[in-house]
Nucleic acid binder design. Structure first.
Lengths: 224, 224
DNA sequence: GGTTCCGTTAGGGTG
DNA sequence: CACCCTAGCGGAACC
């Protein structure tokens, strides 16, 4: 990975055409030949080349450094008016393991379905993935006070989760007007803003134990 | 713009859930609160947060630095196992002028508006960006047979384009019941499935030349 | 603010 | 290799 902090301008030509006037930006060139120019906002680059590129170096009439990146049907010409800093960064160890899907939330959901009463003795499990009429709630349960409880399970519960639960409870009130409806957020980690908003909106919270994977209702049926 | 070169791992939770095992990568934090983690290939980040985020600093039990980026509905937790280098880069001069681009479709649209009759001599241009009553059709034209023709311009026309055109023609039939209405897809590349569906639904097709940029109705008025 | 639709869509899976 | 569909789609324009 090669990082160049510079005052630069660029011209892209390929699938479309674009011009980038001079300004201070970051030019990022990776091992695989992908190139991107990052400005000071957004996670997306202002210009980029996605595929393997061939880099050629040249100079303008005024002596400014020019890097041209060519691939089969595209080309990106970058004029480096002034280079502030240049860094090469490369890992010594093997290859990047890459991103992998986190199934924690689904695992947590099935775990909670089976351990619900132990977490809150007033609750009894009814159904998973219940259709509310406005989205699917993770767990539908029944409170000893007679209310139906919509439980949204999250690993981390940001503020938006409160709104999500309210949509479910609203839909359930419409769908099953005969029952009292309550909403609950069950999560390993609940953000402070979520706590505040939940309290205000009447959504209850259920903090799940960090060691939930080791904690079970019926650990192992005893051998007879 | 804040660049951190580090051995890091991350957990994302929000629209999806994913985990990123430890490896050497670049963490990029911009002024606007967007965050991205770049590996050694591709121009796309391995993980990112698009919107304004709030950064909080904490430590693991083993004393490793943790940066958590929270937004309304998402959270990205980055554990910095080892920081190799940290750079802050900010331009002194004003604001970035930004990229100016010929987006292919808009370009293609205006080109076709001016070259329509040459592509199909039975058609004459009426209007661009015409409001059908159910969306805006790219070009409205008139066929020599008297029909109004709704032309949807695309660089690549996937199957869904047929439905899009049908919505426009349906809306036009309602809006202008006195006229016969036809629908056309004009594209550089038309997928086979699109062809099949278009034929079945009575939508006609117009394949545009790959070298359209060089092809003009009145190339240049000859000097006298 | 919600919805629709484009993107230099990119990238993965399948035939 | 081509074609298909999906995306943590993002972002912009329009309603």
């Amino acid at each position: 990975m090669h990082i160049v902090l510079a005052n630069l301008s660029a011209v892209y030509s390929g699938r479309g055409n674009s011009i980038l006037p001079p300004y201070d930006r970051m030019l990022l060139i990776k091992e695989d030949g992908s190139v991107s120019i990052h400005g000071d906002k957004g996670f997306k680059p202002m210009n980029y080349m996605v595929s393997k590129t061939e880099k050629t170096e040249s100079y303008t009439e005024t002596g400014e450094l020019v890097w041209t990146f060519d691939s089969r049907n595209e080309s990106l010409k970058v004029v480096l008016h002034k280079v502030y800093e240049e860094i090469t960064f490369r890992s010594e160890e093997g290859t990047d393991p890459g991103v992998s899907a986190d199934t924690t939330e689904k695992d947590l959901q099935s775990w909670l379905a089976e351990n619900l009463t132990r977490i809150d003795e007033n609750l009894s499990f009814i159904e998973r993935e219940y259709q509310t009429g406005d989205g699917t709630v993770d767990i539908l349960a029944e409170h000893s006070n007679g209310a139906l409880v919509a439980i949204e399970v999250k690993r981390v519960a940001p503020m938006g989760t409160v709104g999500q639960v309210l949509r479910y409870t609203d839909a359930l009130k419409e769908k099953i007007p005969s029952r009292r409806i309550e909403g609950t957020i069950a999560a390993l980690e609940i953000k402070d803003k979520t706590r505040t908003l939940a309290k205000k909106k009447g959504v209850s919270l259920m903090e799940l134990p960090e060691d939930w994977r080791e904690s079970q209702d019926s650990p192992d049926a005893p051998e007879s």
